[in-house]
């Protein structure tokens, strides 16, 4: 009640006084930068790993690439991302002091494992008859993939991929563990500057919400465009 009565005062102190909004904005910048680059790295790694998992020998057996991909996915999915971040920061890339770079790589490698499963499922969901029809016309397996399977798989993949990006964006909130001032950490530090927790934290939450809402709307528009050929 007290907070509601003095709402303007609280907001003023948490965001406007001494241009404090700049702190959040910088934090948001870090969050978006890491999330965006990680998403791109994740898509690249995920797509490659998905095809590694789908690779087969002439006899239809899994290849060595499949096993490597399985191990990668297992390790990433089997460990907490906070630990992955700490290990990257303190062990693997110890000599690198560019936190953003370490963050992008960690989250990119992490996201790649999940994207790999999404892409693999998306490709498998395309009816086998589509591949057979392509191959029966004399197209190579690569041509069949590029012109027929992947365009159809892309539509299947988009909704779960959107989900993965949302998770990724929010997961970057753990960047504070390695000293990066992302949006969450900026808000958290603000609480000790102004001796009040509620307003900065709610403010950060609202910003996350708006960013994710925009992302959802954009991907929804893309999905509707892609569904045009479906007629359903």
């Amino acid at each position: 009640m007290d907070w509601l009565l003095n709402i303007w005062e609280h907001i003023h102190r948490a965001f406007i006084e001494k241009d404090r909004w700049q702190v959040y904005l910088k934090g948001l910048g870090v969050t978006l930068e890491v999330a965006f680059l990680a998403a791109i790295i994740g898509i690249i790694i995920g797509t490659i790993v998905a095809f590694m998992k789908l690779s087969k020998t002439r006899k239809g057996k899994p290849t060595i690439l499949t096993h490597i991909a399985n191990i990668y996915v297992d390790i990433i999915r089997g460990t907490p991302s906070v630990l992955q971040l700490l290990i990257m920061w303190f062990v693997v890339m110890k000599s690198c002091d560019n936190g953003i770079l370490v963050g992008c790589l960690t989250f990119g490698i992490n996201s790649g494992a999940y994207v790999a499963e999404i892409v693999r499922a998306g490709i498998l969901a395309v009816d086998k008859g589509q591949t057979e029809a392509g191959r029966s016309l004399g197209l190579t397996s690569f041509q069949t993939m590029v012109y027929i399977v992947i365009p159809q798989a892309f539509k299947n993949v988009l909704p779960p991929l959107c989900n993965e990006f949302i998770v990724l964006l929010k997961e970057t909130a753990i960047l504070g563990y390695v000293g990066l001032s992302d949006l969450t950490r900026a808000a958290n530090q603000m609480t000790s500057t102004i001796y009040e927790a509620f307003t900065p934290l709610i403010g950060a939450a609202v910003v996350y919400f708006i960013v994710i809402k925009i992302l959802t709307i954009l991907l929804g528009m893309l999905e509707r465009r892609l569904r045009r050929s479906d007629n359903r």
């Binding site: 009816d127 057979e132 029809a133 191959r135 029966s136 197209l139 027929i148 050929s229 479906d230």
Partner: peptide, 21 residues
Amino acid sequence: INKIREHMGMVFQHFNLFNNL
């Protein structure tokens, strides 16, 4: 085999038209 298949047409039970085209 791709060269051979160019000369062998195939029609399937479930048509298998390319849905994206």
